[in-house]
Design a protein around this nucleic acid. Structure first.
Lengths: 152, 152
DNA sequence: GCCATATTGACAAGTATAATGTCAACATGA
DNA sequence: TCATGTTGACATTATACTTGTCAATATGGC
Protein backbone atom coordinates (compact mmCIF):
# COMPACT_ATOMS: atom_id res chain seq x y z
CA UNK A 1 0.00 0.00 0.00
CA UNK A 2 2.75 2.41 0.91
CA UNK A 3 4.70 1.57 -2.20
CA UNK A 4 1.66 1.86 -4.41
CA UNK A 5 1.02 5.28 -3.03
CA UNK A 6 4.61 6.33 -3.62
CA UNK A 7 4.60 5.01 -7.14
CA UNK A 8 1.31 6.65 -7.75
CA UNK A 9 2.46 9.97 -6.54
CA UNK A 10 5.51 9.75 -8.75
CA UNK A 11 3.25 9.22 -11.73
CA UNK A 12 1.30 12.22 -10.53
CA UNK A 13 4.48 14.23 -10.42
CA UNK A 14 5.44 13.22 -13.93
CA UNK A 15 2.07 14.39 -15.17
CA UNK A 16 2.44 17.71 -13.39
CA UNK A 17 5.93 18.18 -14.75
CA UNK A 18 4.58 18.13 -18.29
CA UNK A 19 3.68 21.80 -18.26
CA UNK A 20 6.97 23.07 -16.84
CA UNK A 21 8.83 20.80 -19.26
CA UNK A 22 6.84 22.10 -22.18
CA UNK A 23 7.41 25.69 -21.16
CA UNK A 24 11.11 25.16 -20.67
CA UNK A 25 11.35 23.43 -24.02
CA UNK A 26 9.44 26.16 -25.81
CA UNK A 27 11.61 28.81 -24.23
CA UNK A 28 14.73 26.97 -25.34
CA UNK A 29 13.39 26.54 -28.86
CA UNK A 30 12.45 30.20 -29.04
CA UNK A 31 15.91 31.16 -27.96
CA UNK A 32 17.39 28.91 -30.61
CA UNK A 33 15.32 30.69 -33.24
CA UNK A 34 16.33 34.14 -32.08
CA UNK A 35 18.93 34.67 -34.78
CA UNK A 36 16.76 33.28 -37.57
CA UNK A 37 13.62 34.81 -39.04
CA UNK A 38 11.62 31.79 -37.91
CA UNK A 39 8.78 31.83 -35.44
CA UNK A 40 8.00 28.80 -33.34
CA UNK A 41 4.93 28.01 -35.39
CA UNK A 42 6.75 28.32 -38.70
CA UNK A 43 9.37 26.02 -37.28
CA UNK A 44 6.68 23.48 -36.47
CA UNK A 45 5.55 23.39 -40.10
CA UNK A 46 9.08 23.01 -41.39
CA UNK A 47 9.83 20.26 -38.90
CA UNK A 48 6.86 18.20 -40.00
CA UNK A 49 7.80 18.53 -43.65
CA UNK A 50 11.41 17.73 -42.79
CA UNK A 51 10.45 14.62 -40.85
CA UNK A 52 7.66 13.30 -43.04
CA UNK A 53 8.16 14.76 -46.49
CA UNK A 54 5.70 16.70 -48.61
CA UNK A 55 2.17 17.00 -47.22
CA UNK A 56 -1.01 19.00 -47.70
CA UNK A 57 -2.21 21.56 -45.19
CA UNK A 58 -4.94 19.26 -43.81
CA UNK A 59 -2.35 16.52 -43.39
CA UNK A 60 -0.05 18.81 -41.42
CA UNK A 61 -3.01 19.85 -39.29
CA UNK A 62 -3.81 16.25 -38.47
CA UNK A 63 -0.20 15.59 -37.63
CA UNK A 64 0.05 18.61 -35.33
CA UNK A 65 -3.44 18.13 -33.91
CA UNK A 66 -4.30 21.72 -34.71
CA UNK A 67 -7.27 22.85 -36.80
CA UNK A 68 -6.52 23.18 -40.47
CA UNK A 69 -7.62 26.84 -40.56
CA UNK A 70 -4.85 27.83 -38.20
CA UNK A 71 -2.30 25.57 -39.81
CA UNK A 72 -3.16 27.31 -43.06
CA UNK A 73 -2.05 30.57 -41.49
CA UNK A 74 1.17 28.99 -40.25
CA UNK A 75 1.87 27.47 -43.64
CA UNK A 76 1.13 30.70 -45.49
CA UNK A 77 3.81 32.38 -43.44
CA UNK A 78 6.34 29.82 -44.54
CA UNK A 79 5.23 30.27 -48.15
CA UNK A 80 5.62 34.03 -47.90
CA UNK A 81 9.09 33.59 -46.45
CA UNK A 82 10.08 31.32 -49.29
CA UNK A 83 10.81 28.41 -46.97
CA UNK A 84 8.16 26.20 -48.54
CA UNK A 85 6.50 26.06 -51.91
CA UNK A 86 3.43 24.44 -53.39
CA UNK A 87 3.77 21.45 -55.69
CA UNK A 88 1.01 19.92 -57.76
CA UNK A 89 -0.64 17.11 -55.85
CA UNK A 90 -1.43 14.06 -57.97
CA UNK A 91 -3.93 12.87 -55.39
CA UNK A 92 -5.84 16.12 -54.98
CA UNK A 93 -6.04 18.89 -57.53
CA UNK A 94 -7.20 21.62 -55.16
CA UNK A 95 -4.85 20.82 -52.30
CA UNK A 96 -1.22 21.30 -53.29
CA UNK A 97 1.56 19.44 -51.58
CA UNK A 98 3.73 21.64 -49.42
CA UNK A 99 7.43 21.07 -49.93
CA UNK A 100 10.51 22.58 -48.35
CA UNK A 101 12.52 24.87 -50.58
CA UNK A 102 16.29 24.52 -50.51
CA UNK A 103 16.42 27.49 -48.18
CA UNK A 104 13.77 26.01 -45.94
CA UNK A 105 15.42 22.63 -45.84
CA UNK A 106 18.80 24.07 -44.97
CA UNK A 107 17.31 26.28 -42.29
CA UNK A 108 15.27 23.63 -40.50
CA UNK A 109 18.15 21.17 -40.72
CA UNK A 110 20.43 23.67 -39.06
CA UNK A 111 17.90 24.53 -36.38
CA UNK A 112 17.26 20.91 -35.53
CA UNK A 113 20.95 20.13 -35.51
CA UNK A 114 21.53 22.88 -32.99
CA UNK A 115 18.68 21.69 -30.82
CA UNK A 116 20.02 18.16 -30.94
CA UNK A 117 23.44 19.40 -29.91
CA UNK A 118 21.94 21.22 -26.96
CA UNK A 119 20.09 18.11 -25.89
CA UNK A 120 23.22 16.06 -26.22
CA UNK A 121 24.98 18.41 -23.82
CA UNK A 122 22.05 18.32 -21.46
CA UNK A 123 21.72 14.57 -21.50
CA UNK A 124 25.39 13.70 -21.59
CA UNK A 125 25.42 12.18 -18.13
CA UNK A 126 22.06 10.46 -18.32
CA UNK A 127 22.30 6.73 -18.88
CA UNK A 128 20.82 5.91 -22.23
CA UNK A 129 18.72 3.17 -20.65
CA UNK A 130 17.13 5.72 -18.37
CA UNK A 131 16.25 7.88 -21.30
CA UNK A 132 14.65 4.97 -23.11
CA UNK A 133 12.69 4.09 -20.01
CA UNK A 134 11.54 7.64 -19.53
CA UNK A 135 10.37 7.88 -23.12
CA UNK A 136 8.47 4.64 -22.78
CA UNK A 137 6.74 5.76 -19.59
CA UNK A 138 5.86 9.15 -21.02
CA UNK A 139 4.43 7.62 -24.18
CA UNK A 140 2.37 5.09 -22.30
CA UNK A 141 1.08 7.71 -19.89
CA UNK A 142 0.04 9.99 -22.71
CA UNK A 143 -1.63 7.25 -24.66
CA UNK A 144 -3.64 5.99 -21.72
CA UNK A 145 -4.68 9.41 -20.55
CA UNK A 146 -5.95 10.04 -24.06
CA UNK A 147 -7.89 6.80 -24.08
CA UNK A 148 -9.39 7.78 -20.77
CA UNK A 149 -10.66 11.10 -22.06
CA UNK A 150 -11.77 9.83 -25.42
CA UNK A 151 -12.90 6.26 -25.20
CA UNK A 152 -14.51 6.27 -21.81
CA UNK B 1 28.36 7.89 -32.32
CA UNK B 2 25.39 5.91 -33.48
CA UNK B 3 24.30 5.28 -29.93
CA UNK B 4 24.74 8.89 -28.98
CA UNK B 5 22.52 9.87 -31.86
CA UNK B 6 19.86 7.39 -30.83
CA UNK B 7 19.95 8.49 -27.23
CA UNK B 8 19.82 12.05 -28.29
CA UNK B 9 16.82 11.52 -30.46
CA UNK B 10 15.04 9.79 -27.62
CA UNK B 11 15.62 12.84 -25.48
CA UNK B 12 14.25 14.87 -28.35
CA UNK B 13 11.15 12.71 -28.40
CA UNK B 14 10.63 13.09 -24.67
CA UNK B 15 10.76 16.84 -25.07
CA UNK B 16 8.25 16.76 -27.92
CA UNK B 17 5.93 14.49 -25.98
CA UNK B 18 5.58 17.14 -23.29
CA UNK B 19 2.85 18.98 -25.14
CA UNK B 20 0.71 15.95 -25.97
CA UNK B 21 1.15 14.72 -22.41
CA UNK B 22 0.10 18.04 -21.00
CA UNK B 23 -2.93 18.21 -23.26
CA UNK B 24 -3.96 14.67 -22.41
CA UNK B 25 -3.53 15.37 -18.71
CA UNK B 26 -5.52 18.59 -18.89
CA UNK B 27 -8.31 16.84 -20.77
CA UNK B 28 -8.40 14.11 -18.15
CA UNK B 29 -8.45 16.62 -15.30
CA UNK B 30 -11.21 18.58 -16.99
CA UNK B 31 -13.24 15.45 -17.37
CA UNK B 32 -12.71 14.65 -13.71
CA UNK B 33 -14.08 18.07 -12.79
CA UNK B 34 -17.14 17.75 -14.99
CA UNK B 35 -19.49 16.84 -12.15
CA UNK B 36 -18.15 19.46 -9.78
CA UNK B 37 -18.49 23.23 -10.05
CA UNK B 38 -14.73 23.56 -10.27
CA UNK B 39 -12.82 24.95 -13.20
CA UNK B 40 -9.29 23.82 -13.95
CA UNK B 41 -7.87 27.08 -12.69
CA UNK B 42 -9.85 27.02 -9.48
CA UNK B 43 -8.65 23.48 -8.98
CA UNK B 44 -5.07 24.69 -9.33
CA UNK B 45 -5.52 27.16 -6.50
CA UNK B 46 -7.11 24.58 -4.24
CA UNK B 47 -4.40 22.07 -5.00
CA UNK B 48 -1.64 24.45 -4.00
CA UNK B 49 -3.37 25.29 -0.74
CA UNK B 50 -4.02 21.60 -0.14
CA UNK B 51 -0.40 20.68 -0.74
CA UNK B 52 1.32 23.59 0.94
CA UNK B 53 -1.11 25.06 3.42
CA UNK B 54 -2.30 28.64 3.71
CA UNK B 55 -0.61 31.15 1.44
CA UNK B 56 -1.04 34.67 0.12
CA UNK B 57 -1.98 35.39 -3.48
CA UNK B 58 1.55 36.45 -4.44
CA UNK B 59 2.87 33.24 -2.92
CA UNK B 60 0.47 31.14 -4.95
CA UNK B 61 1.47 33.07 -8.05
CA UNK B 62 5.13 32.33 -7.43
CA UNK B 63 4.36 28.69 -6.88
CA UNK B 64 2.30 28.40 -10.09
CA UNK B 65 4.64 30.65 -12.08
CA UNK B 66 1.71 32.78 -13.16
CA UNK B 67 1.44 36.55 -12.70
CA UNK B 68 -0.16 37.56 -9.46
CA UNK B 69 -2.82 39.66 -11.21
CA UNK B 70 -4.21 36.58 -12.89
CA UNK B 71 -3.87 34.40 -9.84
CA UNK B 72 -5.88 37.04 -8.02
CA UNK B 73 -8.73 36.39 -10.46
CA UNK B 74 -8.43 32.65 -9.96
CA UNK B 75 -8.40 33.04 -6.20
CA UNK B 76 -11.34 35.42 -6.19
CA UNK B 77 -13.39 32.77 -7.93
CA UNK B 78 -12.62 30.28 -5.17
CA UNK B 79 -13.54 32.90 -2.57
CA UNK B 80 -16.84 33.59 -4.28
CA UNK B 81 -17.58 29.88 -4.40
CA UNK B 82 -16.87 29.55 -0.71
CA UNK B 83 -14.04 27.09 -1.26
CA UNK B 84 -11.44 29.35 0.31
CA UNK B 85 -11.54 32.16 2.82
CA UNK B 86 -9.23 34.92 3.94
CA UNK B 87 -7.48 34.72 7.29
CA UNK B 88 -5.53 37.47 8.95
CA UNK B 89 -1.88 37.25 8.04
CA UNK B 90 0.49 37.91 10.93
CA UNK B 91 3.32 38.57 8.51
CA UNK B 92 1.49 40.98 6.24
CA UNK B 93 -1.48 43.07 7.21
CA UNK B 94 -2.66 43.85 3.68
CA UNK B 95 -2.21 40.41 2.21
CA UNK B 96 -4.47 37.89 3.90
CA UNK B 97 -3.64 34.25 4.00
CA UNK B 98 -5.85 32.15 1.80
CA UNK B 99 -7.14 29.02 3.49
CA UNK B 100 -9.34 26.18 2.34
CA UNK B 101 -12.80 26.09 3.86
CA UNK B 102 -14.13 22.73 4.98
CA UNK B 103 -16.07 22.52 1.73
CA UNK B 104 -13.02 23.39 -0.29
CA UNK B 105 -10.82 20.93 1.52
CA UNK B 106 -13.28 18.09 1.09
CA UNK B 107 -13.75 18.89 -2.57
CA UNK B 108 -10.09 19.09 -3.54
CA UNK B 109 -9.31 15.99 -1.51
CA UNK B 110 -11.98 14.08 -3.38
CA UNK B 111 -10.84 15.37 -6.76
CA UNK B 112 -7.22 14.46 -6.10
CA UNK B 113 -8.17 11.09 -4.76
CA UNK B 114 -10.04 10.33 -7.94
CA UNK B 115 -7.16 11.50 -10.09
CA UNK B 116 -4.78 9.35 -8.09
CA UNK B 117 -7.04 6.36 -8.55
CA UNK B 118 -7.11 6.93 -12.29
CA UNK B 119 -3.33 7.14 -12.38
CA UNK B 120 -3.04 4.00 -10.35
CA UNK B 121 -5.13 2.17 -12.92
CA UNK B 122 -3.13 3.63 -15.73
CA UNK B 123 0.22 2.83 -14.17
CA UNK B 124 -0.67 -0.52 -12.68
CA UNK B 125 1.60 -2.48 -15.00
CA UNK B 126 4.48 -0.03 -15.05
CA UNK B 127 7.40 -1.11 -12.88
CA UNK B 128 7.81 1.35 -10.07
CA UNK B 129 11.51 1.66 -10.85
CA UNK B 130 10.68 2.78 -14.35
CA UNK B 131 8.37 5.44 -13.02
CA UNK B 132 11.05 6.72 -10.67
CA UNK B 133 13.53 6.78 -13.49
CA UNK B 134 11.15 8.63 -15.76
CA UNK B 135 10.45 11.23 -13.12
CA UNK B 136 14.12 11.75 -12.53
CA UNK B 137 14.83 12.19 -16.25
CA UNK B 138 11.93 14.56 -16.74
CA UNK B 139 12.97 16.67 -13.77
CA UNK B 140 16.56 16.89 -14.89
CA UNK B 141 15.57 17.72 -18.43
CA UNK B 142 13.26 20.50 -17.29
CA UNK B 143 15.79 21.94 -14.93
CA UNK B 144 18.58 22.01 -17.46
CA UNK B 145 16.43 23.42 -20.23
CA UNK B 146 15.47 26.19 -17.84
CA UNK B 147 19.06 26.91 -16.99
CA UNK B 148 19.81 27.05 -20.67
CA UNK B 149 17.19 29.69 -21.35
CA UNK B 150 17.81 31.70 -18.23
CA UNK B 151 21.45 31.48 -17.28
CA UNK B 152 22.96 31.55 -20.73
C1' DG C 1 8.51 57.27 14.87
C1' DC C 2 9.22 58.87 10.08
C1' DC C 3 9.52 58.45 5.50
C1' DA C 4 11.12 56.51 1.08
C1' DT C 5 10.12 52.45 -1.12
C1' DA C 6 7.81 48.20 -1.96
C1' DT C 7 3.74 45.40 -1.98
C1' DT C 8 -0.99 44.37 -2.71
C1' DG C 9 -5.53 44.22 -4.77
C1' DA C 10 -8.23 45.97 -8.30
C1' DC C 11 -9.16 47.10 -12.79
C1' DA C 12 -8.24 47.84 -17.86
C1' DA C 13 -6.13 46.70 -21.94
C1' DG C 14 -3.33 43.97 -24.80
C1' DT C 15 -1.43 39.56 -26.84
C1' DA C 16 -0.65 34.78 -28.46
C1' DT C 17 -2.56 30.75 -29.78
C1' DA C 18 -5.70 28.81 -30.99
C1' DA C 19 -11.06 27.08 -32.03
C1' DT C 20 -15.28 27.93 -34.56
C1' DG C 21 -18.31 29.55 -38.22
C1' DT C 22 -19.07 30.44 -42.85
C1' DC C 23 -18.60 30.55 -47.75
C1' DA C 24 -17.45 29.94 -52.56
C1' DA C 25 -14.94 27.17 -55.54
C1' DC C 26 -14.05 23.35 -56.89
C1' DA C 27 -12.99 18.03 -56.61
C1' DT C 28 -14.44 13.48 -55.89
C1' DG C 29 -16.87 9.43 -56.27
C1' DA C 30 -21.13 6.94 -56.64
C1' DT D 1 -23.85 13.95 -63.82
C1' DC D 2 -24.73 15.42 -59.69
C1' DA D 3 -24.93 15.11 -54.67
C1' DT D 4 -21.58 15.44 -51.33
C1' DG D 5 -17.13 16.43 -49.46
C1' DT D 6 -12.91 19.05 -49.25
C1' DT D 7 -10.09 23.07 -49.44
C1' DG D 8 -8.52 27.79 -48.86
C1' DA D 9 -9.81 32.08 -47.27
C1' DC D 10 -11.65 35.14 -44.21
C1' DA D 11 -14.10 36.71 -40.00
C1' DT D 12 -15.35 36.07 -35.38
C1' DT D 13 -14.86 34.25 -30.88
C1' DA D 14 -12.48 32.02 -26.94
C1' DT D 15 -8.94 31.07 -23.66
C1' DA D 16 -5.29 31.87 -20.90
C1' DC D 17 -2.69 34.45 -19.87
C1' DT D 18 0.74 39.20 -19.68
C1' DT D 19 1.37 44.03 -19.10
C1' DG D 20 0.30 48.51 -17.40
C1' DT D 21 -1.49 51.41 -14.05
C1' DC D 22 -3.15 53.19 -9.65
C1' DA D 23 -4.46 54.11 -4.98
C1' DA D 24 -3.98 52.37 -0.54
C1' DT D 25 -1.21 50.88 2.70
C1' DA D 26 2.49 48.15 4.63
C1' DT D 27 7.29 47.54 5.55
C1' DG D 28 11.90 48.36 6.76
C1' DG D 29 15.88 51.25 7.22
C1' DC D 30 17.26 55.07 9.66
Amino acid sequence: MYIVTMQNSELYQIVWMSRPLMQAAEAAVEQGLADTDLTVRMRAVLEVLHAEGDMTVPDIAARLDIKRQYVQVMVNETLTSGLTRQCPNPRHKRSPLLALTDTGRALIAQVIEREMALLQTIGADLPSDDISTALRVVRMLTERLREESAGT
